[in-house]
């Protein structure tokens, strides 16, 4: 019973990491995509470098860097509460890089004629994006976003490297203590069910948007 209570606490942390990362990385990813497509060359380069780093180095390393950066770079001592914040920061900036590429591909796949038609009908640049382009982009990017989201569920377990007690960390502790794999099995089942729910929700959204081609 004790085991389940502990696991449940870890579960909450896992779900929190997952939801907060999505909440921050999706809008951030859109901003990054704009930077990537910007006509301002230096901005474009900056974004390209950022993306290369985020996608080219292990997320685990990024977690460690974000966690220790305040101490090594700014000389600020790290408080215990920062662990969780560091996880959210590291996950958000990492996933934003991936989402940015998805957004960019989505935006670039919208035919130029949509922009022409909108302009002639009096839409401003901003309202063209909000009313005409973005809704169509969302429909097109649901499948790749689903993939990333499922990866994110599993990636949350990486938070253990900076000792954030999410689900997997706790499961490992319990199973070491009890010398049995039950806790790990329960954790595995949890990730599976979590992903199943995520996939189901995304599928529903996809269906809902399938009223047009």
């Amino acid at each position: 019973m004790m085991m389940f209570m502990q696991l449940a606490q870890g579960m909450i942390v896992t779900v929190e990491i997952f939801l907060l990362t999505l909440l921050f990385s999706l809008p951030l990813g859109l901003l990054v995509a704009f930077g990537r497509m910007s006509k301002i060359k230096p901005l474009q380069w900056l974004v390209k470098i950022y993306m290369a780093i985020m996608r080219g180095t292990p997320l685990m390393l990024q977690l460690i860097v974000v966690y220790f950066a305040p101490y090594y770079v700014f000389g600020v001592s790290i408080s215990g509460g920062y662990r969780f914040v560091a996880v959210i920061i590291a996950f958000s900036i990492n996933y934003a890089a991936y989402f940015a590429e998805i957004f960019r591909a989505g935006i670039e796949s919208i035919p130029i004629g949509q922009y022409d038609a909108a302009k002639v009908l009096g839409y401003t640049r901003v309202s063209t994006f909000m009313h005409i382009i973005f809704p169509q982009v969302i429909k097109r990017i649901i499948p790749p976003v689903t993939n990333e989201t499922i990866t994110l569920v599993k990636d949350t377990s990486l938070a253990f490297v900076i000792a954030v007690a999410e689900m997997f960390t706790i499961a490992k502790q319990i199973s070491a203590k009890q010398a049995s794999v039950t806790a790990l099995m329960v954790a595995g089942l949890f990730y599976f069910v979590f992903n199943y729910v995520v996939a189901y929700i995304m599928e529903r959204i996809e269906k809902k948007l399938s009223y047009y081609r």
Binding site: P111, A117, V120, G122, Y123, Q136, Y212
Partner: peptide, 27 residues
């Protein structure tokens, strides 16, 4: 002025009614 395109360029995510009425509402 208005422009009608060779390949229509209708907004695929809007119904016929919305294609015609939405620019009036928004713009």
């Amino acid at each position: 002025f208005g422009l009608v395109f060779q390949n229509f360029n209708l907004f695929p995510h809007y119904s016929v009614l919305k294609n015609v009425s939405e620019p009036l509402i928004v713009n």
